[in-house]
Amino acid sequence: MEHVEDPPAPGCPGIRRITTPAGDPAWLVTGYEAARSLLADARVGRSHPDPGNAPRFSESTLFGRPWGRVETERAEHARMRRLMARAFSAGQSEALRPQIQATAERLLDELAALPRPADFHRAVSQPLPALVVAMLLGVPAEDSERFHRWSDDWTHADDHQRARSGMENLRAYMTDLVRRKRARPGQDAISDLLGVADGSGEVTESEVVALATTLLFAGNETTVAAIDKGVLLLLRHEEARAAVWRDPGLVPLAVEEILRARSPMPPDPATEQLGIVRYAHCDLEAGGAAIREGDLILVRKLDANQDPDVFRDPARFDVTRRPNPHLTFGHGPRYCPGAPLARIELQVLFAALPARFPGLRLADPASPPRRQPGRLTPHPENLLVTW
């Protein structure tokens, strides 16, 4: 079914009614202030007051339907956030920087040895986040290709059997790994979480499996997309690329702008309206819109990051933009716990590129790579570069 949109109601900037691909009504939130407010609002969540009759975005096992129970969601989320904070603390992420640096440099060495043009997506963007999250969780490096394949399967919005299979394979793998970590703990996030489970009873082994599976998936797929987007943006904007290549001190600002900016790849109509899925737990108002209990809310963070009331000349890719209060990692109590680690990965890679590949360029600058269709995270079919 095609998306059907109503025009924004008077007095409701950045929020409008749509019909989802599943045929259900929803609020699509694209304005910055409305998005920021709803992302932090405790009156909305992933659960639904009447889950059997909840509106859906699609049949996706990941984003299409409600999760959990309204009565317990807030307490469960707060508890899991405390555990995720242990796994993804800024200090623990920063401690991995030397290993991330060494891994990125090794992958760039392997890229340099390939015939030109070479696929940056396959050689660097895909393996780096998988290897980094493996370091964090204590996953054997030799297994990173397998779990990357399963997390990739999980993101297929138009192949529900493939998505479910990917999710189940990841969960089965993580169940086995957690049992091995219990028998032989190491210096890693899973062993740390198991120590909490054994010591305080705050978390069960099954919850460690669920949490580690989520971390394995989320820490991999979104960072792959950010690396691909960053390479495309820098190589398609000569002035920005020259500035970053000339001044490594711009890398942190450039990373924030990469996170904020739209991808140069054409959008995928199947997932174009997908946003952060939330359900209203009571009647509320946002951006002047009267949202009713049980309504589906789709918060489009990338659209909010283009709001001209917040970002001057938002369509411009500006690697010196400051301030840059983008919502890519969310806002409020659901702010992404993996943000510090993702930032370090991006900073390390984009600081290494100028010295290693000063002449890096797109093999065919006139034709942007095509996006893999039906994917919840935007990956190119290939990202061919030369130097």
Rank of each mutant, 00 (worst) to 15 (best):
E5Q: 14
E5W: 12
P13C: 05
G14R: 09
A22I: 02
W27D: 10
V29S: 04
G31I: 03
E33G: 01
A34C: 12
L38V: 06
N53H: 15
R56A: 11
L62C: 02
F63S: 11
G64D: 10
P66Y: 02
A78P: 00
A78L: 13
R81A: 12
R82C: 05
A90S: 12
Q92F: 12
Q92V: 10
I100F: 12
A104F: 03
A112R: 06
R116D: 07
D119H: 03
H121F: 14
A123F: 08
Q126D: 14
A130I: 11
L136R: 12
G138P: 06
P140W: 08
E142K: 13
S144D: 04
S144P: 02
E145L: 14
R149D: 15
W150D: 06
T155K: 00
T155H: 00
H160Y: 07
N169I: 00
L170E: 11
L170F: 10
P185N: 11
Q187W: 00
D188Q: 06
L194F: 08
L194Y: 07
A197G: 01
G199F: 00
S200Y: 00
E202K: 00
T213A: 13
A218Q: 09
E221M: 13
K229N: 07
G230R: 07
L235S: 03
L235M: 08
R236P: 00
R236L: 14
R236I: 00
R236S: 13
E238A: 15
A240Y: 03
A242T: 12
L250E: 01
V251W: 05
L259K: 06
S263K: 05
P264S: 06
M265N: 06
P269G: 09
I276W: 11
R278D: 03
A290R: 15
I291G: 01
N305Y: 04
D309R: 15
R316Y: 07
P323Q: 06
H326Y: 04
G332V: 05
I344F: 08
I344S: 06
P358M: 07
P365D: 10
S367L: 14
R370W: 01
R371I: 09
P373A: 12
L383R: 06
L383N: 09
V385L: 06
